[in-house]
């Protein structure tokens, strides 16, 4: 019950931030020197009357606060305007693209957490031994290598040279042929993973390295804690100490890190989608900028920011769930 109240409280807290995001993005887009219509029509012969028509069509003839209000109210009613390039509602264009991005980002995080936490613990347990040094070097390479270059290298090695994985595209789990049956669905999932594997590693490596570093320091700190000494004095086995006492406390900063890492990962998705030619939100953002389709640019940027904010709230709630010390606001 208390956790539920905390959840609602955190979501309520996020409202000003979400409003702020829309203000910042709206200001950016209206900051353009010269008006967007002229940029859109640059290099084409357009009559003055047609310019006026275009301005009226995209609502650019009205004062800025009215336009902001239109945009905001449209956002909450699901009406994000019309895409100039696709000539379809923006929400429809985005619905088709959001799946691949979410699949990519979530699987990258899954990969990062599943590999980083055991490696971080191992490094902390065998501090200053060869396995610690190796995992630290791996982490150093991970935080120093651009994700898109990892992607390019993976494509060169595993797709071009060895031919083990496809170099482009993504298959969605929910796109299975409807008459496939159980075994057909199984092979469809294999295909999904087959396509997902390389981009997932490219995007997840930075997260993996970051989490691994923090996990290691936290575990080292945690293993030197008073409660661990006490548990040892009571004769609790090292295994139990590692698994129960030290581990749980050490996870708290890691949870925060996962939430904040979502920001980097969503940005990284733009690059990964470009390298692996995946039709996700990131590609849509870049393409829409190229096509001067500013309605789409604005909406994609806002949605990606909203996804990040929601991700941070979820990790905050997870934090509160794991950490018994957190009071859920309101002086409880």
């Amino acid at each position: 019950m208390r956790l539920l109240r905390y959840t609602l409280f955190r979501f309520a807290q996020a409202i000003p931030v979400l409003l702020g995001i829309t203000v910042i993005l709206f200001l950016f887009i209206n900051m353009t020197p010269g008006d967007p219509i002229r940029i859109m029509t640059a290099g084409q012969e357009v009559s003055e009357s047609h310019l006026a028509y275009l301005e009226a069509r995209y609502g650019l003839d009205r004062p800025i606060h009215v336009r902001y209000w239109d945009y905001l109210s449209g956002f909450f009613t699901g009406d994000l305007g019309r895409s100039i390039h696709y000539n379809r509602p923006v929400s429809e264009v985005m619905m088709a693209r959001i799946g691949p991005t979410l699949l990519l980002v979530l699987s990258a995080f899954l990969f990062a957490v599943v590999t980083a936490i055991p490696l971080g613990i191992l490094a902390a347990k065998r501090r200053n031994q060869p396995s610690d040094h190796i995992s630290r070097i791996v982490a150093l390479f991970g935080v120093s290598t651009p994700s898109f270059w990892i992607g390019i290298m993976l494509i060169i090695i595993f797709a071009v040279q060895l031919g083990w994985f496809p170099s482009a595209g993504l298959v969605m789990p929910w796109d299975a042929p409807s008459d496939a049956g159980l075994s057909g669905y199984f092979w469809h999932m294999v295909d999904v993973l087959h396509h997902l594997f390389l981009p997932m590693i490219a995007l997840g490596t930075l997260q993996m390295a970051t989490i691994m570093r923090v996990e290691r320091t936290q575990m080292i700190d945690s293993l030197q804690g008073e409660y661990v000494k006490l548990a040892r004095a009571y004769g609790v086995s090292e295994r139990t100490i590692l698994r129960k006492h030290a581990f749980q406390v050490a996870q708290l900063p890691v949870i925060t890190l996962v939430g904040l890492g979502l920001s980097t990962a969503l940005g990284g998705a733009v690059l990964t989608e470009t390298v692996f030619n995946i039709n996700g939100m990131g590609r849509l953002l870049i393409d829409s900028i190229q096509q001067k389709d500013y309605q789409v640019v604005m909406s994609v940027a806002t949605i990606l920011a909203v996804i990040f904010v929601i991700g941070v709230i979820i990790t905050d709630i997870a934090y509160a769930y794991v950490d018994p010390r957190v009071t859920y606001g309101e002086g409880e």
Binding site: V17, G20, I21, T32, I39
Partner: peptide, 22 residues
């Protein structure tokens, strides 16, 4: 905090595009 809530690379791309007017 609001500035921080927009994923970095996306903020930079949108800013660069619009501040420079293309």
């Amino acid at each position: 905090e609001t500035l921080y809530a927009i994923p970095g690379l996306i903020l930079i791309i949108v800013f660069t595009e619009f501040a420079s007017g293309g």
